[in-house]
């Protein structure tokens, strides 16, 4: 795997292929199949919303892209490189390699290291040699996005509130130059005002030629602010609407 890849999407200005190209993806855990023959294309610079109910496969889609489901099959191309393929066990075995291709996952809930401080947490996100060398300015950049974290740098993450944890989780994802950001339910479990603030911060991130997929249950938070909204229903993507039309388009949900 090329070591220069994580910088490439930001720098190049020439027209390039899709950031993410999923074909015929099925994934699940044990005997359960959660995602059924899913196709999805995400282009550079795109901010994509995925909406759907609990248990319809939004998180599983993200886990499948990161290679963390129980099993999966089908093609997933990240920056034109195949990271999917068939796999019957060994969740997480290749995740670190996929992540190093330029994937930043900001998971929902508690995918977080309780005992590490906020600062160590941000450091842990800087996993490329270049990001590790530049970690000080990068941390400053994230503190500019999330000012409340400045006072909490030495506090173990286990003692933070839900909103602060979400900020740490997103900040961690921003420590490297990713080509694709996967944000899983950024407003989940947060007070509406804080959830909105987190969403504002996500919208303020300059994508350049990278892309972002946001899974969310609250369509109102996404409408008018992302480029496309897809509905997810029992493991397949249904309907597609540009965001201005999202509220009028009849979706097959």
């Amino acid at each position: 795997m090329s070591k220069t890849y994580w910088n490439a999407p930001v720098a190049s200005s020439e027209p390039q292929g899709p950031i993410l190209e999923i074909k015929g993806l099925s994934a699940g855990y044990g005997p359960m199949r959660v995602i059924h023959d899913l196709d999805l294309v995400v282009r550079p610079g795109e901010r994509l919303g995925v909406v759907g109910l609990n248990g319809h496969g939004k998180s599983t889609l993200f886990l499948a892209i990161a290679g963390l489901t129980g099993w999966q099959r089908g093609s997933i191309k990240l920056n034109g490189r195949e990271v999917g393929g068939s796999r019957s066990q060994g969740p997480g075995r290749y995740t670190h390699l996929i992540v190093r291709q330029g994937l930043a996952v900001m998971p929902q809930g508690d995918e977080i290291f309780h005992g590490l401080t906020v600062e160590e947490h941000l450091d842990s996100g800087a996993f490329t040699p270049r990001a590790w060398r530049e970690r000080a300015p990068r941390k400053e950049r994230i503190l500019a996005i999330f000012p409340p974290l400045r006072k909490l740098m030495k506090v173990p993450v286990g003692r933070l509130s839900g909103g602060e944890r979400r900020m740490v989780s997103i900040g961690r994802g921003l420590m490297v130059d990713a080509a694709l950001f996967l944000v899983d339910e950024p407003s989940l479990g947060l007070a509406p005002k804080i959830g909105k603030g987190v969403m504002e911060a996500l919208m303020a991130i300059e994508l350049g030629s990278s892309a972002m997929i946001i899974a969310e249950q609250n369509v109102a938070l996404l409408e008018g602010r992302v480029d496309r909204i897809l509905g997810m229903h029992v493991g397949t993507l249904k309907g597609e609407a540009s965001t201005s039309l999202a509220s009028q388009t009849k979706r097959d949900l």
């Binding site: 963390l68 997480g92 998971p107 977080i112 290291f113 309780h114 160590e120 842990s124 961690r172």
Partner: peptide, 23 residues
């Protein structure tokens, strides 16, 4: 950095792979 990786894996091996730490 290596020590941070080890401590991260001590706390949450699942999340560790998401920050590029090879198990």
């Amino acid at each position: 950095r290596r020590g941070l990786e080890i401590r991260a894996m001590m706390m949450n091996p699942h999340a560790a792979s998401l920050v590029g730490i090879g198990v």
